[in-house]
């Protein structure tokens, strides 16, 4: 999937260059270097368009269909501080950078792990949450695979382009990239893969007692990582959000929202 997307991107870029000649080239470069006054354009249109996926407990719908969650609530507060409305738009996660560059969303605010790939494709805020990539195994196999070394014999399923995939690569695991974390879990449950690597925040909600995956459990953590919010490259909203995070962290309102969704322990200190 990742390979496919990079080909898409190359084709899109190549065709856009062909279509627009030099003008497209210069404007893309200028995008990277000079700053983009997104603050003004967001205020002009009166709304902040937030790209999300359905991802409990960060962004999800309540009974009435309203978007809630730690990220969603913080996004609402941030929009309020700018004096604009917030509009949540569900996106295809693989296309998040495309959505930003094409202007169909203003930011990606969805428990996004700050990988090199993400930070090179977007302008990212300071980290606001800590997270880890952890290994999911069927319960009956846990004892046989106590450490990374022994796990090298397993076939992993990971979300394409996710921090989980990066970890699988780094540890030299055999893996198959699937299109989201839930699919990775389904692979393990169906026995088509031996193990999966997913976010610890997600694992808490989706694996174990009272879920479809009662036969699965989480084992070791492979790393620690951070969540951040992504904006268009060079956007001046990034700085604006960092200031906002600092204020909320200091006055305790960030912790208050986090407690509501059970992620207060994962909060990152705002400098």
């Amino acid at each position: 999937m990742k390979k496919f997307l990079s080909i898409v991107m190359i084709m899109v870029m190549a065709m856009s260059l062909a279509a627009c000649g030099n003008s497209a080239k210069t404007s893309t470069t200028s995008n990277k270097e000079s700053s983009v006054d997104d603050l003004k354009s967001v205020k002009d249109k009166g709304k902040l368009v937030v790209g999300i996926t359905d991802f409990e407990p960060m962004d999800y719908k309540d009974e009435s269909g309203k978007w809630i969650g730690f990220d969603a609530d913080m996004a609402v507060k941030f929009a309020e501080s700018l004096g604009v409305e917030v509009e949540f738009v569900e996106i295809e996660w693989d296309n998040k950078a495309l959505e930003l560059e094409a202007g169909s969303i203003d930011c990606v605010w969805n428990g996004m792990t700050l990988t090199d790939e993400v930070t090179s494709a977007m302008s990212c805020s300071n980290a606001y949450c800590n997270n880890a990539q952890i290994v999911i195994l069927p319960k009956d196999k846990v004892d046989s695979y106590p450490d990374v070394e022994s796990m090298k014999a397993l076939n992993f399923a990971v979300e394409a382009g996710s921090a989980g995939e990066a970890q699988a690569k780094e540890n030299g695991f055999n893996y198959t990239a699937v299109n989201n974390q839930a699919s990775a879990l389904m692979e393990v449950s169906a026995g088509t893969s031996d193990a999966a690597i997913i976010d610890s925040l997600m694992a808490a909600a989706m694996v174990g007692e009272g879920t479809s995956y009662e036969n699965l459990t989480y084992t070791i953590g492979l790393n620690s990582e951070e969540y951040g919010v992504g904006f268009r490259k060079g956007s001046n909203l990034t700085e604006e959000l960092n200031k906002f995070f600092k204020t909320c962290y200091d006055d305790g309102s960030m912790k208050e929202v986090a407690s509501k969704y059970g992620v207060q322990a994962a909060l990152a200190e705002q400098q």
Partner: peptide, 15 residues
């Protein structure tokens, strides 16, 4: 697919 990731209080459901 939304119910695989989690939606409307149902998460991790494949069916």
């Amino acid at each position: 697919q939304a119910f695989m990731k989690g939606s409307q209080g149902i998460s991790g459901e494949i069916w």
